[in-house]
Structure formats: structure tokens, C-alpha cells
Design a binder for these strands. Structure first.
Lengths: 106, 106
DNA sequence: TATATTTGCAACCGATTGGTTTCGTAAATA
DNA sequence: TATTTACGAAACCAATCGGTTGCAAATATA
């Protein structure tokens, strides 16, 4: 069962969970309250998120607080980075074309 | 069969295809040459990428050239953006802590 | 101590996945 | 015209997915 961040964020429920716990740690029950699905289903998603190290657990009595390991999200950002370069370059090129047109108008 | 960009980039082969055709349009056969898998398998991946509008086709004789619709990648970038704010803020806070320590040392 | 709450885990289910093989079509080439 | 090449689509397969139900363990409360 080889997991990675990209597989983790592929599921919309998982993306919602990530967004939920990004700022504040939450218990599985509290997280599940935000969805139509069952607690067990959320628990399964949390296990997957834990497996790919996107999430951190903190036991507190009988409750377990889950929070986001935001550093892991940088992996996605890094991958997207290579394409950001491309679309920024293309924007620059378009910019050059536009300014050339302006010059010609003058 | 509702597809989105996040599902598209979940598969490693698909991510590799995306990176391959990001700069230059390529035919399915040319793409398949870069992988261990068959042409038909790559063809299936290309269909999925087409379905979620990540890819553009251009017929040229009996060949079909596939290229990346880089604008679509911005959707992922946008989603990651909300977390970038968080980790940059945390970095700022760490920075403040560090400069406070420096001041105290002085 | 008996009961209720919070949780993870295993078993199971139908749907979907990524891959293969096979086939049909259209374009290039002999 | 006959053959080869490039490709998509369909049928099929084992593996995995997301979800459910049921249960056991640990902690809190009566």
C-alpha cells in the first residue's frame, strides 16, 4: 500500500478534511460532524492521511486530536512549481508582445 | 464519470506524461516510448487527461499531437495557495522569534 | 463497579482503477 | 490496390477504493 501526497489529495472528502484541520487540531468525531458520511469513514481517511504523513495525532485522554503537517503540502507546491515557471514565462512573452504592440501604436 | 485535476495528477504515470508534454506536443507512441507500459495504456491515460481538460489534441495526418493545457494546472496551484499562506505566516512568526532572540543577545 | 463515550480495526460490499488483449478505422506507403 | 502504421474504443481482469456494519479497547462518568 504505497501512498503519496498526490493520492491523498485526490479525494474531495480528504481535501476538505485537510482544509478543516489546517489551522486547528480536531477530533475524528468533530471532523465527521462536517460531513454527510460516517465517523468510521472519516477515520479511514485519517488513517490514509496518517500513512502518507500529512497528518499528526495527539492523544488527549480518550480523544485524539488530528492536525495538518503543513510541510508535507510543500511537496505538491514543489511539483506545481515547475509548471508555474512555464506559465509565468508565457505570461512574460505575452507581455512583451503587448508592449511591442503599444510601441508600434505610438 | 466526473473527473477533476486532482484525480488526474494522482497517478504517477499521468504526472510523468504531464511533465513530458508540458513544453512540447507529443504523439501517444512517442509518449509511450518513455514508459514500460503499452501504448494502449498511455492512450487511456490521455483520455482521462482529456476528460478533465488538462490536455489538448491536434490531429496532423494520422498522428495526434497532445499538449498540456497549462492554465488548468493553476487550479491545483490555487488550492495549494491557501496553505502557502499558512506556512509563510508560520515562517514569519519563527522569523520574529529568532530576531527577538538576537535582540536579547545584544 | 457498571455504563457511556471516543476511537481504531477488521470484514465485507459494490464501484472504480490501471492494465492487457483484441478489434476497427483512417492515413501513409509499397 | 494491398500493406503498414497510428490511433481510439471495447471487453475483460485483478487490485484497490470509499463506504458500511460490527466489534474490541481505553478512558470518562454514574
Amino acid at each position: 500500500m504505497r501512498r503519496d501526497v498526490f493520492q491523498a489529495i485526490a479525494d474531495p472528502t480528504r481535501r476538505a478534511i485537510i482544509a478543516l484541520i489546517a489551522l486547528h487540531a480536531m477530533t475524528p468525531n468533530a471532523i465527521a460532524d462536517n460531513f454527510k458520511t460516517t465517523r468510521q469513514s472519516v477515520s479511514k481517511h485519517l488513517r490514509i492521511l496518517t500513512e502518507c504523513e500529512l497528518v499528526r495525532q495527539e492523544q488527549q485522554g480518550r480523544e485524539i486530536y488530528y492536525s495538518l503537517k503543513i510541510e508535507k503540502m510543500k511537496e505538491v507546491d514543489k511539483w506545481i512549481g515547475q509548471f508555474r515557471k512555464i506559465w509565468e514565462t508565457r505570461f512574460d512573452q505575452l507581455d512583451k508582445v503587448l508592449s511591442t504592440i503599444k510601441k508600434h501604436k505610438k
